[in-house]
Structure formats: structure tokens, C-alpha cells
């Protein structure tokens, strides 16, 4: 019983702090309201015995929001988000979409014929989840990850304003390099 109440309260906290993202008027508050929402969800996942998934969700999301706050403050709005600002736009369309989505999902929850449990949970549910998600697709994952890394590296290389010729000179012999931002490695 107390487990169910705790799970429900965390769910409520997750939903309310998720909604707070749009009520508050500062980028910092919006970002950390979202972080709080994710922490509540991560704690809920602990209730599902998925300890690793739950704790890692908290880890990744708090880190992401800490970095996100930097970018939000830098790039959002006409003022660089250091002043109070509204977190919403296109209100009417957004309201319509939100209500329609909620109704569709809620209808799904109520109308679907939920299956009854067959069998028992695996002893290590985290391993079982990983196997179910990835087991048959490991080859695809192994092939995709180097392609993704290569895409990131290529994207950054192409987007770079300065190239190695700017840093090291036309014959790449200039040492130390000519950098606008000093590094600590002494290159």
C-alpha cells in the first residue's frame, strides 16, 4: 500500500513539475523543473525494480539539464534569458494539440483490453529488459555506433569555421598552434 502511495505521489510530482516548466517565467526555473520531473520519473523506475535504469535516468537527466540551462540562457529569447520571460507560444494551437493528445492517450488506457500476466518476471529484470530491447539487434547497434560517431566527427569538421590550416599554417608546421581559444595541452 505504502509503495503504491509513494509511486503515485512521485507520478504526481513528475506531472506537476513537468507542467511547471510552462508556468514559470525564468529559463533556469523551467530547466530545473524539468530536471525535477525526470528525477521523480527515475525514482518511479526504482519501484519497478529497474534500479540501474532508474539511477542512470537521474544521472543523465540532471547532467543534461545542467548543460541545457547554459544553452537556454545563452540562446533563448531576445534578451539572453537573463530576464523573466514567457515559456509558451502559439497558445491556441498548443492547447488544441495537448487536449487532443491527452484524450487519445487516456482513451487508449481505458479502452484497451490489457493482457493478463503470463509467466513470472525474470530474476534480473534489468538484464531481461536489455535482452528484450537489444538482444536480437546487437549487430545493428554495433554497426550503427561507429557510423554515428563518424557522422558527428564529420559534421563538426564540416561546420568548423577554422581548419587545421588556420591553426598550424599552410604547411602544418606552425607550433604552437594559432588558436583563438587557448588550450591547456600545450600544443
Amino acid at each position: 500500500m505504502s509503495m503504491a502511495v509513494g509511486f503515485g505521489l512521485l507520478g504526481l510530482l513528475a506531472v506537476l513539475s513537468g507542467a511547471a516548466v510552462f508556468w514559470v517565467n525564468s529559463m533556469a526555473r523551467a530547466t530545473y523543473a524539468l530536471a525535477l520531473s525526470f528525477v521523480a520519473v527515475g525514482l518511479q523506475v526504482l519501484f519497478l525494480q529497474q534500479n540501474y535504469v532508474g539511477v542512470v535516468t537521474i544521472l543523465m537527466m540532471v547532467m543534461e539539464m545542467a548543460i541545457m540551462a547554459v544553452y537556454m540562457v545563452m540562446f533563448m529569447g531576445m534578451n539572453p534569458a537573463l530576464m523573466p520571460m514567457s515559456m509558451v507560444h502559439s497558445n491556441k494551437a498548443a492547447l488544441g494539440i495537448a487536449v487532443a493528445t491527452f484524450l487519445a492517450l487516456a482513451a487508449g488506457v481505458l479502452l484497451i483490453d490489457w493482457p493478463t500476466r503470463r509467466g513470472t518476471p525474470a530474476p534480473d529484470v534489468t538484464a531481461a529488459l536489455g535482452d528484450a530491447l537489444m538482444g536480437s539487434k546487437m549487430l545493428v547497434m554495433v554497426v550503427t555506433s561507429p557510423v554515428m560517431v563518424a557522422t558527428i566527427v564529420a559534421g563538426i569538421s564540416l561546420a568548423q569555421h577554422r581548419t587545421r590550416y588556420d591553426r598550424f599554417g599552410d604547411d602544418l608546421t606552425q607550433r604552437p598552434s594559432h588558436d583563438t581559444q587557448p588550450g591547456g595541452g600545450g600544443r
Binding site: A28, N51, Y52, V56, I58, L59, V62, M63, M65, A66
Partner: peptide, 21 residues
Amino acid sequence: LDVGVVWFNALDVVVWALVWL
């Protein structure tokens, strides 16, 4: 906790948020 090491790691990341806040 079976994932105590990750627990510690998640908490040290929370410090990022706290110092910035």
C-alpha cells in the same frame, strides 16, 4: 543497493546543478 556505484555517480552529477543554481 545493487547499483551503488551508479548511485554515487548520479549524486556527484547533481552537484553540477547545485553549484550552478
